[in-house]
Design a protein around this nucleic acid. Sequence first.
DNA 1: TCTTGCACCTCTAGTCGCTAGAGGATGTAG
DNA 2: CTACATCCTCTAGCGACTAGAGGTGCAAGA
Lengths: 140, 140
Amino acid sequence: MKKITIGEAARKSGVKVPTVRYYESIGLLVAPSRSEGNQRSFEPADISRLAFIRHARELGFEIEAIRTLLTLQDDPHQSCASADAIAKARLIEVEQRIRSLMALKAELETMVEGCGHGRVDQCRVIEVLADHGQCTHPHH
Amino acid sequence: MKKITIGEAARKSGVKVPTVRYYESIGLLVAPSRSEGNQRSFEPADISRLAFIRHARELGFEIEAIRTLLTLQDDPHQSCASADAIAKARLIEVEQRIRSLMALKAELETMVEGCGHGRVDQCRVIEVLADHGQCTHPHH
DNA sequence: TCTTGCACCTCTAGTCGCTAGAGGATGTAG
DNA sequence: CTACATCCTCTAGCGACTAGAGGTGCAAGA
């Protein structure tokens, strides 16, 4: 069993070195064994775990949600209802965020289109910002 | 000219009281005059400025971008090219964020649909998280 | 063997945009 | 005059890292 350094673990999992240490510090990762010179020595399983965390973070899950997902993964005989609930909650969040960003996009497009590229006192960007009443979609 | 308290300014602009003080502390708002008892006394213009900031924040502009937009608003004879550039940059950000969230949404839907509500070792949510290769849309 | 130089170690502090709370002063209505 | 709401300043906390200081370990080339 060869030793995996933190740098290698970081490269293979796609998590940055300081972030790996951070995850260890908050208990998301079990503290790995150390070499004689006090350097961390990871196992292949740690790399999978890091990749799992990274993927979940990319999908926008919060650390606490990931903590729950990880304990579920650690005990595969549990019901996956919690995992399902977490994913569903995240899906609803994402859907709401998309709706809100679409409204925003429409607003920004109106602002940018209306800008005559002249002076500020005729600029629709500034004008719309100053007066929310000019918004076509007030839901943001 | 009657005095406007911070509470009233907050209510009228939709910005919370501590946030008003925070904006003053970072120089987004000029420090207002004070009453004999050291309480802030705002002008109507301050309320407009706060509403401007709030609206821009709702549209997702960063404080530094808002700072630039405000200096533009303060000098209406300037060219509005910067305002236009800021709004356009924000629009591009929003569009990218929407695209990325759509990919995410698809991923989460697959995860949730695939979940048979059984035990964790058959759970697609956990499985997909553990293996990025199973993603249908790798762009997140 | 020595040295170079990168990767590793710990620790603290900073990022952003607020928000919460302590502990006290002021202002207003009854 | 007494409640009581609102105001004041100050510090610390949030989430999820990121940056930097100051020092140690380790492998490869001269």
